[in-house]
Computed example of a mutant assay.
Amino acid sequence: MTQPSPLSDRRVVLAVAVLCCFLWGSAVPALKIGYGVFGIVPSDTATLLLFAGVRFSLAGALLLGYALATGKPVGLDRRTLGRVSLLGLVSTAGQYLFYYVGLAHSTGVKTSITTSSSTFFSAILAHWLYTNDKLTGRRLVGCLLGFAGVVAVNLSGAGLDLAFSVLGEGFILIAALLFSLGGIYGKRVSGQLDVMVMTGWQLGLGGLMLAVAGLATGGHLGGFGWEGVLLLAYLAALSSAAFALWALLLKHNPVGSVAIFNCLIPVFGVSLSGLVLGESFLEWKNLVALALVSVGIWLATARKDSVVGRPSP
C-alpha cells in the first residue's frame, strides 16, 4: 500500500501554502523597488515583459542547476519537452503577458481583486476534471469569504470602481484563468516528471518567451548595479521556491483545497508593502481581510480529501 505524501498532511499544506503566498506577496514591494532601480515606467509593457522574462529565466536556471547538483536528470525527450513548453507558454509566458498588459490598463485595486478570481477558476475546473475535488457548498462559501477578504483589503474611502475594460480587467481575468489552467495541467505533467525539473523548465522556457517578446517590442533594461542584481536575484529565488512548492502541493492535494490560499497573496502584499515601503497598513480593513481569508481557508480545507485527485473518465 502506497504511503501518503507528507505534503498531503493538512498542517504541512497550510505551512507550505502560506509560505508560497508570503513569498509571492513579498514580490509586490520588491517589484516596486525594482522598477525604480531599473527605471521602468509601469506603462512600459515591453520593458516589463523583458524584466519578467529575465526574472523567470533566472528562476528556471536556479531550479535546474539545483536539480543537477542533487543528481536529478534534467534532460527531456521530445514529448516531455513539448509538454513543459506548453506549460511554460500557458503558466508563465501567457499568464504574465496578459497580466502586465492588463495591469497597464487597470488600477492596482481592481487588478488585485480580479486576480483572485483564479481561486474560482481552479475550483470550478477541478470540479469537472477530478472525481474527488468537487465544489461543495462549504468550499464555495470558503472561496466567497476569501474573495470578500481580497475586496476588503482593497477598499478605500472612495469605494470600489466597478468599471470594466477588455484590455484592463478582461486581460487580468485571462491571466487568472491561465494561472488556473497551468496549475491543473502541471498537476498532470508532474505525474511523469520530477516537480523541480518540471518547474525549472516551465519557468526557464516561459521566461525566455517573455524576454523575446519584450525585446521584440522595444523593451530595454538598464541600471544593473549591485542593488539591481540583488533584487533580481531575490525575485528569481522567490519565484523558483514558490512555484516549485506550489506545484508539489498541487501534485499531492486536490486543486480546490490549495487554490483558496491564493487569497492570502494580496493580504501579504499590502502588509509587506507597508513594512518595506513605509505605506499605511495598520488599518481595520486589513485585519478584517485577514480574518475573512482565514475563515475562508478553514472552510475550504477542513475536510478529509483524498491524497491525489483522479481525472474523471
Score class of each variant (00 low, 15 high):
T2P: 15
P4S: 07
S5Q: 00
D9N: 14
D9G: 05
V12S: 04
V16A: 06
A17L: 03
C20H: 01
W24I: 11
A27G: 12
A27P: 08
P29C: 10
P29D: 09
P29R: 13
A30N: 12
A30V: 14
V37K: 00
V37M: 01
T45K: 14
L48I: 15
F51W: 15
G53C: 15
F56P: 00
L58C: 10
L58H: 09
G60V: 06
A61E: 07
A67P: 01
L68W: 12
A69W: 15
T70D: 07
P73M: 03
P73Q: 11
P73G: 06
V74F: 10
R78F: 15
R78D: 06
T80R: 13
L81R: 14
G82H: 14
L89S: 13
T92D: 00
A93W: 15
G94C: 09
L97K: 07
Y99G: 03
Y100P: 11
L103I: 14
T107Q: 08
K110A: 09
T111L: 08
T115Y: 07
S116K: 00
F121K: 00
S122C: 01
A126Q: 00
H127C: 03
L129S: 05
K134D: 04
L135K: 10
L135V: 08
R139T: 10
L140Y: 10
V141I: 14
G146S: 03
A148V: 07
V151H: 02
V151E: 04
A152E: 02
G157P: 10
G168V: 12
F171S: 08
I174A: 13
A176Q: 04
A176E: 04
G182W: 00
K187T: 00
D194R: 02
M196D: 03
L208W: 12
A216R: 14
G219D: 10
L221H: 10
G222Y: 10
G222A: 12
G222E: 08
G223F: 08
G225E: 15
Y234G: 12
A237L: 14
L238Q: 13
S239C: 05
F243S: 04
F243H: 10
L245R: 06
H252R: 02
N253P: 01
V255C: 00
S257V: 12
I260N: 02
F261E: 01
N262R: 01
C263A: 06
P266V: 04
L272R: 13
V276F: 12
F281E: 06
L282F: 11
L282Y: 12
E283G: 02
W284S: 14
L287N: 07
A291Q: 11
S294N: 06
G296T: 04
L299W: 02
K304F: 00
V307R: 07
R310L: 05
